[in-house]
């Protein structure tokens, strides 16, 4: 179990990570989610022992302060793989094994097993320079897993890849980590990636953890408006507007708390309890996206200007139309 207690990292006298407390249980995958520059990669490097830090880092209760990187047994996978270009794919994967003096047939078998695991069986003799971006990341993953690290540190492992590949590899990554029961700390700015791969997540902002918990908890109750927007909620409503929306969705009265809504929280529906005037219409492959001025009609949301809504593709909606809107309660979150 990894414990991070009050850890701070300073660059040039300025804290880029300040007072972070987190735990990663054995076999668990924790995602640290935050925008670029929030200090999440620095935190990861501190855990790896690559940045000097204040506070306490511990593994199974033992302090790591005096343990150098190479004795921690935490494998770090970089955003761009950082394969050793002068070694073949197999030698890259076997690097950590050779360090542990695992050689010969045993090392070859383990290397082959891992290349198979990441879907690159038979790539052993290739040089890294001949691989595509996705293949390089797969090799980097295999290399990190080969020495059976106590903890796997993943620094934006999929960010350098294009969207389609990223989605596919995120699924693979989750299956591989689950299958091996690997304990992992994943750092990313992409909430989709975090949701796909992790069990729990921590949201970081300007060097601090603003919220941590199980995926569904964080998702259902973002700590504040910033977190909600970062997690992909489209808007945050406050005061009477929040109360009206909750009432229309059949939710409990938020009691003065703000409410975050997904882009698809309001759906055009004749039987809806809210109304508004359509401002703009944009078609996407699966549905029509609308921007609705909800402050007008008599069933509007008081004090709110525009909100997002969706309509089925077949619904003929034009700017200027009056529409009725239904609230999808699952796509609304009351802020903590």
């Amino acid at each position: 179990m990894l414990s991070i207690e009050g850890v701070s990292v300073a660059y040039d006298g300025h804290d880029v990570v300040s007072g972070v407390d987190l735990r990663v249980e054995d076999g668990e995958v924790l995602a640290v989610l935050g925008p670029s520059g929030c200090g999440k990669s620095t935190l990861l490097r501190a855990v790896a022992g690559l940045e000097p830090c204040r506070g306490r880092l511990g593994w199974d209760g033992r302090d790591l302060a005096r343990v150098p990187t190479h004795r921690r047994g935490f494998a770090l996978m970089f955003q761009d793989g950082q394969l050793f270009d002068h070694l073949t794919v197999a030698r890259n994967v076997a690097y950590g094994l050779r360090v542990q003096r695992v050689r010969g047939r045993e090392a070859a078998a383990r290397t082959e097993e891992l290349l198979e695991l990441v879907g690159l069986a038979g790539y052993g003799d290739r040089m890294p320079a001949t691989l595509s971006g996705g293949e390089r990341q797969r090799v980097a993953l295999a290399r990190s897993l080969a020495p059976r690290p106590r903890l796997l540190l993943l620094d934006e492992p999929l960010s350098a890849l294009d969207a389609g590949l990223r989605e596919r590899l995120a699924g693979d990554l989750r299956d591989i980590l689950r299958g091996a029961g690997t304990t992992a700390l994943l750092v990313t700015h992409d909430h989709e990636e975090a949701f796909t791969v992790a069990d729990r997540m921590a949201v970081m902002r300007e060097g601090r953890v603003v919220q941590a918990g199980a995926l569904s908890d964080v998702w259902r109750e973002p700590a504040d408006a910033w977190t909600a927007l970062f997690l992909g909620y489209a808007r945050v409503l406050e005061g009477p507007a929040a109360a009206a929306l909750a009432a229309a969705g059949g939710l409990a009265d938020p009691g003065g708390r703000a409410v975050a809504v997904r882009r698809s929280a309001l759906v055009v529906d004749e039987a809806g309890r809210l109304s508004g005037r359509v401002r703009s219409v944009r078609a996407t492959p699966v549905q029509t996206r609308l921007v609705v001025d909800a402050s007008t009609g008599h069933d509007g949301l008081p004090g709110v200007g525009e909100v997002d809504a969706v309509a089925p593709l077949e619904a003929r909606v034009r700017p200027g139309d009056e529409v009725r809107l239904r609230v999808e309660p699952g796509r609304v979150a009351v802020l903590g």
């Binding site: 490097r45 790896a48 022992g49 690559l50 150098p68 990187t69 190479h70 004795r71 921690r72 047994g73 935490f74 494998a75 770090l76 970089f78 950082q82 394969l83 050793f84 690097y95 950590g96 360090v99 542990q100 290399r143 990190s144 020495p147 690290p149 540190l153």
Partner: peptide, 19 residues
């Protein structure tokens, strides 16, 4: 970063220098 990657894979400073 390659040197850091090697260190997280368990390579000592001398080994990182050499390999």
């Amino acid at each position: 970063r390659p040197a850091e990657a090697a260190a997280t894979l368990g390579a000592s400073p001398a080994r990182v220098l050499l390999t």
